[in-house]
Amino acid sequence: MRRILFLLIFGIAGLAILLSLGTWQVQRLHWKKGLLADIDTRIAGDPANLPDAIDPEAHRYLPVSMAGEMLPREIHVLVSVKQVGPGYRIIAPFRSGNRTILIDRGFVPTTAKSTARQVGEMEITGNLHWPDEIDSYTPEPDTDENIWFARDVPALADSLGTEPVLLIARSQTDPEITPLPVVTAGIPNDHLQYAVTWFGLALVWAAMTGYFLWRSRAPSESETQ
């Protein structure tokens, strides 16, 4: 009897923990969906002027429209685009009045790395962003070949002599550059997968608990003889 009671308590406790983890992930799923909807609304909002004082948290995804001069220097960030293949994001300095910031002009294939691009006066619409692309496995930039492996905004700004502010263009700045505007598709939302995993484990746990309880209650062969 004690064995059955122990198995019952152990099984119920484990089931409760697994179900609570699955429920928490469902709650996180709804929270993440709401967050992504808010980000989508912010990204698609009416463009404003570049704020005087930039706050990377408060102004993340802020739509901005600027007029100024695209300067000739640029940095190439190695990326890969689905159904297209490898290429580079073109990061260039953009001067507007007495301010110079970074512009992510968009994507070019590897064959267009050294192609001359339009510079000079233009208007740009895009979204402010500070991508989180650096981890312990990110290689250092190959400065000799001008190839970078992540959009490290402070390092890019230091290299190009700009403010540590990155505007990712939605509008086209050159006929040969394909804009890669900010979208929420790249923001992970794996909570449904996690919820299914926890609920699946709860189902297995319940089945195993029921099996062991049945085995414990079933008469042994010696008892039936």
Rank of each mutant, 00 (worst) to 15 (best):
A155E: 08
H129P: 04
I101N: 03
I103K: 02
T110E: 12
G126D: 08
N127T: 11
R117L: 15
D158Q: 15
T143L: 11
M122R: 00
R105W: 14
H129W: 12
G126C: 06
K113S: 08
R117N: 02
D142A: 11
P131A: 07
P141W: 03
H129L: 15
D142T: 10
I101R: 00
R105T: 06
D144F: 09
I101A: 00
W130T: 03
I134Q: 04
E133K: 02
E133P: 05
E140L: 09
T125R: 09
P139K: 04
E123G: 11
N127H: 12
T110D: 10
E140D: 12
F107M: 02
E121P: 04
Y137N: 14
T143H: 09
E123L: 06
P139M: 01
D104N: 13
E121S: 03
G126T: 04
Q118N: 08
N146P: 08
T125Y: 08
T115N: 13
N146A: 05
E121H: 13
V108R: 07
T125W: 11
D104C: 06
E123S: 14
V119P: 01
A155K: 14
R105N: 07
M122H: 00
S136I: 10
E133R: 00
G126Q: 04
D135R: 01
R105E: 09
T138M: 01
D158A: 15
T110V: 13
T143Q: 05
T138K: 02
P154S: 02
T110A: 14
P141M: 00
W130D: 00
N146T: 08
P141A: 04
D158T: 15
I147K: 05
H129S: 13
W130C: 00
P109S: 02
V108E: 07
E123M: 10
T143R: 15
I101T: 03
P154E: 03
D132A: 13
K113M: 10
S159Q: 13
E145G: 05
R117F: 09
N127F: 12
N127V: 05
E133G: 01
Y137R: 14
H129Q: 12
